[in-house]
Design a protein around this nucleic acid. Structure first.
Lengths: 216, 216
DNA sequence: GTCTATAACTCGATAGAC
DNA sequence: GTCTATCGAGTTATAGAC
């Protein structure tokens, strides 16, 4: 047990990436220190530069990794073969779970993207496709089949994302305004896992007992 | 027209705060440079330290100002004397307008709060009350009067905030996934001003033509 | 109050031994 | 590959003239 900060039997390069991820996620590019990353990895600062040439390149590796695990995960959840209402429940539950296990991830991604959108996104040109096309198509089809009200699929997708992500990135504010401790906050979020799908489905479902429906 | 970066006839102290606000909002505490703030204010760096003793104190002034304009503004909108559905429309419209005019503000507040919740929030103990008590009470009353479905007021308030704020802080992502330019993004947000109230009201309104309602 | 000059320090990066 | 030692740029903060 010479160094318990990282699992044993991993290469120095892996140790660096693991530590860098943790530090960058928590403190952002500007707030992170190469020294701190090295310390956490249990290696020397010079080794960081040996494997990754600069702080910026190390950051790029961490950010690319974040986006390339986040986007496919969202897609995977949204591409599940489920009826629309079930999928909304399934997505909410699993996405919130993912975010709660990586508390710093959403603020990190949002903040760094805001700092430098073009620089960062230019690296994801042809590569991974960001558009949730399967989910969008499913919504469109549900509208067409009169299973749900007339709804803009793009807006509905952002609604779903908003309701899941915002409460987590606003954690400190929510704890303050509702006077919650850590445990109370967790309860609040768990309650949301139920509330969000109900809230969305209530909004878009077609009300069977009324005459003609859909807006306009 | 000796210096057009700031309005004339303002004291140096005011010029500093105005410039500091702009730089800190855009770049955060770690990313901001005292030199850049001084340049933008059109004064010397030493003067920053003359008026505000340190970078941290200057930042605190900017952050306190941000919270102390944001929170009362939210309260003011939520305390308007309007029926619930009208208020939801009124709030959405004006709050999104406010955020669009201060694009960097929400990410700034969220990010810095996440970096240092206890340090920052400890300064707002007795002072301004964060809880939107009037709005919460109004929702509770509407539920009691069977004007809307049984709804947790705390969750509904966060839903409203989520739907307004998230799309703005996720601007770079939304532009990417929907392939929008600046103008297209503005259209998307303007569309939301209509969509959000409809979305929320559809969800909570009691459906008149069906037998008995409310969950449970 | 406002400026110039500079001290004191932090941090990313590199040289060079092993 | 990994380390120690150190350079050099950049940053906050201050001393001191005006």
């Amino acid at each position: 047990m010479k160094n318990s900060k990282n699992p044993p039997d991993v290469t120095a390069e892996q140790k660096i990436l693991i530590s860098a991820r943790e530090i960058f996620h928590k403190k952002g590019f500007e707030g992170a220190r190469m020294q701190e990353i090295a310390d956490k990895a249990g290696i020397n600062k010079a080794l960081l530069h040996y494997y990754y040439r600069s702080k910026e390149k190390l950051f790029d590796a961490v950010f690319a990794e974040a986006l390339k695990t986040l986007i496919p995960k969202v897609k995977e959840l949204l591409d599940a073969e489920l009826p629309l209402f079930d999928k909304i429940k399934y997505f909410t539950d699993n996405y919130i779970k993912l975010l709660m296990e990586n508390m710093y991830l959403p603020v990190f991604v949002i903040y760094e993207l805001f700092q430098n959108p073009e620089k960062i996104l230019s690296k994801f040109t042809e590569k991974s496709n960001f558009t949730p096309s399967v989910f969008i198509a499913q919504i469109r089809k549900s509208v067409k089949n009169k299973e749900i009200k007339k709804t803009d699929p793009r807006q509905l997708f952002i609604n779903l994302m908003s309701l899941c992500i915002y409460p987590i990135i606003a954690k400190p504010l929510i704890m303050k305004i509702y006077d919650l401790n850590e445990q109370g906050f967790n309860r609040f979020i768990n309650q949301r896992k139920k509330e969000i799908p109900e809230f969305i489905i209530n909004s878009i479902k077609i009300n069977k007992n009324s005459s003609s429906n859909g807006k306009k």
